[in-house]
């Protein structure tokens, strides 16, 4: 009886683990897409709204929502008093603090970090150029992430269950 209960627990645990891993694969392209949309909104705010960065990032944070949105919120917060950090520091700190809660990988973080160096420090034309570069890079990551999702999402979902069954068979 106890053995039976253990077996069920093992299978449940591995299934859950596989399921979570699969979700990561599904979330990553979705979040990259959100990031791209957020940057495009930033482009509009800069180009047509002349909105100062802290306000622009706050607004974008609200619209994006979720883990991506909270990164922008945090960056805006870092820029305002009493912290008064530079745009670059503010975004980098927000990325470091908030990245763990997303499904995105280090590559995307690196793109955003690169982007932070020029954020707010040049004229509109230049800003748009940098946003476009970041968006392009993110898009290629998104493409890759989608391929990975297609390849691994289903696999991990069933792999969890199978691995659990495998352990149970060996131990039984």
């Amino acid at each position: 009886m106890l053995k039976m209960l253990g077996a069920v627990l093992v299978i449940a645990a591995t299934t859950l683990a596989g399921w979570l891993q699969a979700r990561q694969y599904a979330n990553r392209p979705q979040q990259i897409r959100r990031l791209i949309l957020a940057l495009k909104r930033l482009e509009t705010e800069i180009m047509y709204g002349f909105t100062p960065l802290p306000d622009a990032l706050d607004r974008i944070g609200e619209q994006s929502g979720g883990a991506v949105g909270s990164i922008f919120h945090r960056a805006a917060q870092n820029m305002k008093p009493p912290d008064n950090r530079t745009a670059q520091e503010a975004l980098q700190l927000a990325l470091e603090a908030g990245w763990k809660t997303t499904a995105m990988k280090a590559v995307e973080q690196d793109i955003m970090r690169q982007f932070s160096y020029t954020l707010g420090t040049s004229d509109r034309k230049d800003q748009l150029g940098h946003i476009a570069t970041a968006v392009r890079q993110l898009e290629s990551e998104e493409h890759e992430a989608r391929e990975e999702q297609n390849r691994y999402e289903k696999m991990f979902r069933s792999l969890g269950l199978l691995f659990g069954a495998f352990i149970v068979i060996i131990l039984y």
Binding site: I46, F50, L53, P54, A87, G120, T121, D123, D126, Q127
Partner: peptide, 14 residues
């Protein structure tokens, strides 16, 4: 550069 960032409200483009 910090001073410039602060006086422009982090937004030189404005």
């Amino acid at each position: 550069s910090r001073l410039l960032d602060l006086i422009t409200n982090h937004s030189l483009y404005t």
